[in-house]
Design a protein around this nucleic acid. Structure first.
Length: 402
DNA sequence: GTCAATTCACATGAAAGAGACCACGGTCTAGTG
DNA sequence: CTAGACCGTGGTCTCTTTCATGTGAATTGACGA
C-alpha cells in the first residue's frame, strides 16, 4: 500500500506539467488582454473623466460569456484607481457586484447590501425595509464628495429575476445626491437585454454602449499561447493542443474562459495520469470531464422536489412504452413517485415551471408543441450524455432514498 | 371539399399565501459591585 | 447597574398554490358546389 502511495505521490512531485497553475484560473488577471485593445480604449475614454472626479456616462457592455468584458472593465478601473492613488486623490470608489452569484445578489435588497458592504459598511442580510437600505446607501455616499462607480456584472441575470425597477431607482438617485455622484457600468451576457427593459432605464443606463464580439479561434489561440507560457513547463504541450482547445471554445461562441478551463483541466488530467506531455487526448477527456462535472454538480444540488421530477423524466426516457415524453406523463410518474417516497405532491403548475428550469439548465430539451385536439404540451427529451446517466441516477437514488 | 368554430391539454402570467430567516427594540433575568 | 436571554413585531425571500388567460393544430360540423 505504502509503495502504491509512494508511486502516486512521486509521480505527482516529479511530474512537472504546470509551472504556475494559477495563471489558468478564472480569478487571474493577466497584464495584457489580447484582441481587446479597441474595447479597452473605448472603456478608458468613457471612464476617463473620473480621473478628475467628474461623473462619467453610464456604460453598458454586451457580449457573450468569456469575451473579456469583465476583464476589460476591471483592467481599466484598476488603472484609473492606480493613477488616482498616485496623485493622492481618493474621490473615486469602484464597487464591483456580480449579480449572478446567488446568495450575494439576486434581489434588489441584496445587491444594495452588497454595494454597501463593498463600500466598507455593513447591512444586515435581511430584515430591513428596502427603502431604509436606500437611505443608508445615500447617507454613506453623501458623507463626502466622491464619485461612485458601480459595476454590475451579469446584470441581465439580476433583471431577469427581479425586474428593472432597481436600475431605475439607481439611475434616478443622482438627482437626490448633493455631494456625490453615481455612475453605473452594466455588464450583460445577453445581447437582447436592453430590448425588454423600461425605456426610461434604457436611455439613462445606455448612455454609452459597447459590444464585445466573441473571439474567433485564432484570437483564442493567441490568448491561450500567452497564458500557457507562464502556466505550463516548457515543452509540455504537444503540437496542436492549443489549436484544439481554441477550436473547442470557438465552437462555444468564443468563450475564452472555457478555453482556459479546458487547458487547466487537461493539464490536471495529464498530471494525474503521470504523462510527461499534455496531448490531444487529454483535451478530449477534459472536455468531457467539464461537461460531466457541471451536470453532476447541478443534479446533486437540486432541491428534493426537483430531483423527483428529474428522476421521473429519466425513468420515462428509459421506458420503451414512451417514445415521446410530455408534461402529463411526467406529472403522472412524478405523482406515483411522491406517493412511494412519501413526499408532498406539488401542483402541475409548479412542475411545469420546474421542467422549464431543467430546460434552462440544459439537463433536458423542451419543445412546446401543439398536438391539435390532444392539446398543447411540452415534448421533453433527456439531454444527459450516456456517460453520466448512470452516475446521475445513482445520485438521485441515494438522495431520494429510493 | 372548404372554412370557421370548437376543443384539448397544457403553457404562461399574476397575485397571493406560508414558512423560514433576520434585525430591532423592549422586557426580563441573573450576575456584579 | 448592566450584559445577555428572550419575545413580539415587522420586514424580506423562496417556494408554492390559486386563479385567469392564452395557444395552435386536429377535429368537428355547417355550408356550398
Amino acid at each position: 500500500m505504502v509503495a502504491k502511495l509512494d508511486k502516486i505521490f512521486n509521480s505527482f512531485v516529479e511530474n512537472r506539467i504546470f509551472k504556475n497553475k494559477g495563471v489558468l484560473q478564472t480569478s487571474y488577471t493577466p497584464d495584457t488582454i489580447p484582441h481587446r485593445d479597441k474595447q479597452i480604449e473605448a472603456v478608458a475614454s468613457i471612464l476617463a473623466p473620473s480621473l478628475r472626479g467628474e461623473r462619467v456616462s453610464n456604460l453598458f457592455c454586451f457580449g457573450k460569456t468569456g469575451t473579456g468584458k469583465t476583464l476589460s472593465v476591471q483592467y481599466v478601473t484598476n488603472e484609473i484607481l492606480k493613477r488616482i492613488k498616485e496623485s493622492g486623490g481618493d474621490n473615486l470608489r469602484v464597487v464591483y457586484v456580480n449579480c449572478k452569484l446567488k446568495k450575494v445578489a439576486d434581489t434588489e435588497y441584496r445587491i444594495l447590501a452588497e454595494i454597501i458592504s463593498s463600500l466598507g459598511e455593513s447591512v444586515h442580510s435581511t430584515g430591513l425595509p428596502t427603502g431604509a437600505v436606500y437611505s443608508k446607501f445615500v447617507e454613506i455616499i453623501e458623507r463626502k464628495k466622491q464619485l461612485i462607480l458601480i459595476v454590475l456584472d451579469e446584470i441581465d441575470q439580476a433583471v431577469k429575476k427581479i425586474g428593472d425597477n432597481f436600475l431605475y431607482t439607481l439611475t434616478r438617485l443622482n438627482s437626490e445626491l448633493k455631494n456625490s455622484q453615481i455612475s453605473i457600468v452594466g455588464i450583460s451576457n445577453s445581447l437582447t437585454f436592453m430590448d425588454n427593459i423600461d425605456p426610461r432605464v434604457r436611455s439613462s443606463l445606455g448612455e454609452e454602449e459597447l459590444v464585445f464580439p466573441p473571439y474567433n479561434a485564432l484570437q483564442l489561440q493567441d490568448i491561450l499561447r500567452e497564458r500557457t507560457e507562464d502556466a505550463f513547463s516548457e515543452g509540455v504541450l504537444q503540437e496542436g493542443v492549443i489549436a484544439k482547445c481554441a477550436a473547442f471554445a470557438a465552437r462555444e461562441h468564443g468563450d475564452a474562459r472555457r478555453a482556459l478551463d479546458l487547458l487547466r483541466v487537461a493539464g490536471e488530467i495529464a498530471e494525474r495520469e503521470s504523462l510527461d506531455k499534455l496531448n490531444l487526448d487529454c483535451i478530449d477527456k477534459a472536455n468531457n470531464k467539464i461537461e460531466r462535472d457541471k451536470m453532476i454538480d447541478i443534479i446533486e444540488n437540486e432541491p428534493k422536489q426537483h430531483q423527483l421530477v428529474l428522476y421521473s423524466i429519466m425513468h420515462l426516457s428509459k421506458d420503451k412504452n414512451y417514445d415521446k415524453i410530455f408534461t402529463g406523463n411526467v406529472y403522472n410518474r412524478y405523482q406515483e413517485l411522491c406517493q412511494r417516497t412519501k413526499n408532498d405532491i406539488l401542483t402541475q403548475r409548479r412542475i411545469s415551471d420546474i421542467i422549464a428550469e431543467f430546460d434552462m439548465l440544459g439537463l433536458i430539451n423542451v419543445d412546446v408543441i401543439s398536438r391539435g385536439r390532444k392539446g398543447r404540451t411540452r415534448e421533453i427529451k433527456m439531454m444527459l450524455p450516456e456517460t453520466i446517466k448512470t452516475k446521475a441516477e445513482e445520485i438521485l437514488i441515494t438522495s431520494l432514498m429510493l
